[in-house]
Amino acid sequence: MRLIKHPVLCNYYVTYRCNATCSFCDIWEKPSPYITLENFRENLKDLKKLGVKVIDFTGGEPLLHRELDILLEEAKRGGFLTTVTTNCLLYPKYADRLKGKIDMLHFSLDSPDEEEHNQSRGVKCFDKLLDSIQIAKNNKERPDIIFTVFEQNVDKIERVWNEITQPNDLVLILNPVFNYNSVETGENLSEASLQKLLWWGKQKNVYLNEAFIDLRKNGGNHVENPVCRAASTTIVISPENKLVLPCYHLGTKDFDIKGNLFDLYKSNEVQEIVALEGKLKECEGCVINCYMQPSFSVEINKYFWKALPSTLKYNYIKGTWKNLF
């Protein structure tokens, strides 16, 4: 049974540019402009009309956008929840400008070992992450640590928890890795690793969406009975001011917005693509977390019930549940 029939999230790509070269991502390889304030303001009004509650300012590295603080301020003024994920290279420089404007601030971490983390990111940024934690805390911010879990680093969750998140009273978000397009991230997580993730998800200040684990055990999205609701739950806007469908990672079609996002999204041409969400041949086996998360929240099924406890846990810790209603 569908609970919510309108989009709830906007993945707003402020730029595809990045100052890191992560091996498990290809976004940084793309040439890219930056979004403009004019286009953003036009789209913000239509996102409100469409029912969107959360705007994820993403990239690339979103802090490369020199007016990110203004974008965030306008989104907050419009009543949206805001989220930003950063590699922390620029956070110490811009922390004061961003203060109080991000509801869910995420710092990316791949390893508790400096050399290993830097190698994964293709740039020296481990020290910037540690500095950023202290700067954020001094600014009364509550950043989360997003730990992307691979088969080769699952045993390092304990050190991240003991050495970084618990001493700083931060939430540790466990992000199971996924493959997409031609980007290969290594072998799939084993049954043993999935069980370890489930155990860690029950620990203090650790967030793991248990539905992610079930989805992987079940072979991901299946086109004959899709669980993915990417196109109907999530508006994806590119740096070129285009609506991307059915999701960023698949991105089979895009449309110039031209100051008319609401009517464009409601148009027959777009809705025909929305209706194919999770049903395209490329959707078979998909487990992409950033689209499954909202998919699990809008429709009552087995994944909804699996996702609910961890979702409530995170929103209770962060206090963001108050802004969702």
Score class of each variant (00 low, 15 high):
75 A>L: 11
95 A>F: 09
77 R>Y: 10
96 D>N: 12
100 G>Y: 08
70 I>V: 11
123 V>I: 15
101 K>Q: 06
118 N>L: 00
132 S>W: 03
66 R>C: 01
109 L>N: 09
122 G>H: 09
95 A>V: 08
146 I>K: 15
144 D>K: 06
100 G>P: 02
87 N>H: 07
108 S>E: 03
86 T>N: 03
107 F>R: 05
73 E>S: 11
69 D>Y: 14
101 K>H: 09
134 Q>N: 10
136 A>Q: 00
67 E>H: 13
93 K>F: 11
128 K>R: 13
121 R>P: 00
75 A>G: 01
115 E>L: 03
103 D>T: 06
143 P>F: 07
142 R>E: 12
122 G>F: 02
136 A>W: 00
108 S>A: 14
90 L>Y: 09
83 T>W: 08
109 L>C: 12
67 E>F: 03
108 S>Y: 05
100 G>S: 03
94 Y>A: 06
122 G>R: 04
66 R>G: 08
127 D>F: 03
87 N>Y: 01
114 E>L: 10
116 E>K: 12
103 D>K: 11
80 F>V: 05
77 R>A: 15
94 Y>G: 12
132 S>H: 09
86 T>L: 06
145 I>L: 13
139 N>I: 00
140 K>D: 15
98 L>K: 09
143 P>K: 03
94 Y>N: 07
91 Y>G: 06
108 S>V: 09
89 L>E: 08
145 I>D: 10
